[in-house]
Design a protein around this nucleic acid. Structure first.
Lengths: 214, 214
DNA sequence: CCTATTTGTAGGAATTTCCTACACGCAAAA
DNA sequence: TTTTGCGTGTAGGAAATTCCTACAAATAGG
C-alpha cells in the first residue's frame, strides 16, 4: 500500500545529461511511468493534453521561458496536475511561498541530493503539497547519518565491507558467518538507511569517511 | 579483460543533484572507484595529492574558477591524470582542439546522453584521448537505434513488453514460451542495444515511440 | 548447394531479493 | 524482580535475476 496508482510523469529539463540521469533514477521505481519529456516549455504545453501527466517535473530556468510561467499555464490547462519545480538555487522561504501560491506542489533545488527528488515526487503524487524539512542550507542526509550511527556493530562492519565492493561471499568468510546472514545484514542496512542500491551506500560511506578501503 | 585496474575517479561538479545522479550511474560499474569529489576547483586541487585519482571528471564552469584552468593546474601537479571535461554547451571542433592541446583527454557536453559519459570514461581510463564520433549536433543514440532496427521479431516483442514493465512471467505466458526463454531474449536485447538496466530500455523505447503501452 | 550466422528456445549455476524465523540479551514496565 | 518486548546475530526458503552454454531450425552469403 505504498502508493496507489502509477505516477504518470512528464519531465521538462533542458540538458539531456541531467534529464537522462534523473530519468534513470526515477524509472528505477516501478510506480513511475514516463508519459513524456521535453527540453522546452512550449513543447511541454503542446504535448500536455496528449500525454495527460499526473506530475510535471520541470526546471525553473528553461531555455525558452521560465518554469514558473509554464507551470502556471499547464495548471490552467490541467488543474489536477501536480507540479514539482527544480530550482537552480536554494529556495528561500519567500520564493517558496510564491511558488505554492501559484499552485506548485513542491520545489527541490539542484543543490539537494537526488534522493530528495524521488522522495518529493512520491509525496506529491496524490496532489498533496510537500515542503521538505529544511531546504535552505546544506542540510544533507541528516536522516541517513542518524540512521548510520544507530547501526549495530555487525551491521557497520558489513556496511563498510560492502561499500568497498567486497563480494558477499568474502564478507561471509571474513566474519565467519553464512552468506545468508550477510544478506540479512545487507537487507537491514538498506532498510535502516533508506537506500535501494549499492551506489547509494558507497557514496554515503565515502562521504562520511567510513568507506576507506585500505 | 574489459578493463585492467579500477578507475580511481575524482568528480568535481558544482550542483549536488547532478553530481549525485552522475555518481549513482558511474558507481554502478564495478570498475569505478570514487576517490574524491568536490564542488569547487580549489578544493579539487587541494585534495588532489591526497587522493591521487587516475581520472578527473570536471565541469567546465565551476563556481570559483573555470574547469580548464583547474584541469591545467591539476595536470601540472599530476601529469599522469586523465581529465574528462563536462561542458555546458556542445563542443565545437575549435574548442575541442584547444582542450586537447591543454592535455585534456576528452570532452562530453551536458547535451549528450549520460551513457556517453560512461563510455568516454571507459575509453580514457588508460590515458588515451577520446574524441566521440559526432559531438556537435543532436546525434543521439544512433547506435542503439540502428541496433534496434536489427532486432528480430521476437526480440522486439519482448523489448516492447519489458519496456511496459510487464513481468517476465506474464511475458512468457503471453508468448507461450518459458521464462528462461524470455530471459534469453532479454539478455540478447540488452547486449545488442548496449544497455545495462531496465530504465535505459524504457527510456529508449519511449523515445522511439515503440513503448506505448496503451 | 553448402557453410556460417542468426533466431527461437531453454537449461544450469550462482547470486540477489524478499520474507520469515528464532534464540538471546538488554531494557522498560509492572 | 519478574515479565514483556524490541533489537541483534543468525539463517532458511522461494522466487527472480544474471551470466553462461546449448542446440536445432531458419537464413543469408558465397
Amino acid at each position: 500500500m505504498v502508493g496507489q496508482r502509477k505516477i504518470r510523469l512528464y519531465v521538462t529539463v533542458g540538458q539531456r545529461m541531467l534529464r537522462d540521469s534523473l530519468l534513470f533514477q526515477l524509472l528505477l521505481n516501478d510506480d513511475v511511468e514516463l508519459v513524456g519529456e521535453s527540453e522546452t516549455g512550449v513543447d511541454t504545453l503542446n504535448r500536455l493534453s496528449a500525454t495527460r501527466p499526473g506530475v510535471l517535473l520541470i526546471e525553473e530556468n528553461l531555455q525558452d521561458n521560465d518554469g514558473l510561467t509554464i507551470a502556471e499555464s499547464a495548471l490552467s490547462l490541467q488543474p489536477s496536475l501536480s507540479v514539482l519545480l527544480i530550482s537552480d538555487t536554494p529556495v528561500s522561504t519567500g520564493r517558496l511561498a510564491i511558488y505554492l501560491e501559484a499552485g506548485i506542489k513542491a520545489v527541490v533545488s539542484k543543490h539537494q541530493p537526488v534522493q530528495e527528488l524521488m522522495k518529493t515526487l512520491l509525496y506529491i503524487r496524490n496532489g498533496q503539497v510537500y515542503v521538505s524539512a529544511r531546504n535552505t542550507a546544506a542540510d544533507d542526509t541528516p536522516t541517513a547519518l542518524a540512521a548510520y550511527r544507530a547501526l549495530s556493530g555487525r551491521e557497520r562492519e558489513v556496511a563498510h565491507l560492502m561499500a568497498g565492493r567486497v563480494p558477499v561471499r568474502d564478507i561471509a568468510e571474513q566474519l565467519g558467518v553464512s552468506c545468508k546472514t550477510v544478506h540479512s545484514y545487507k537487507d537491514r542496512i538498506f532498510v535502516k538507511l533508506g537506500f535501494e542500491r549499492l551506489p547509494e551506500l558507497i557514496l554515503f560511506m565515502h562521504r562520511h569517511q567510513h568507506g576507506a578501503t585500505s
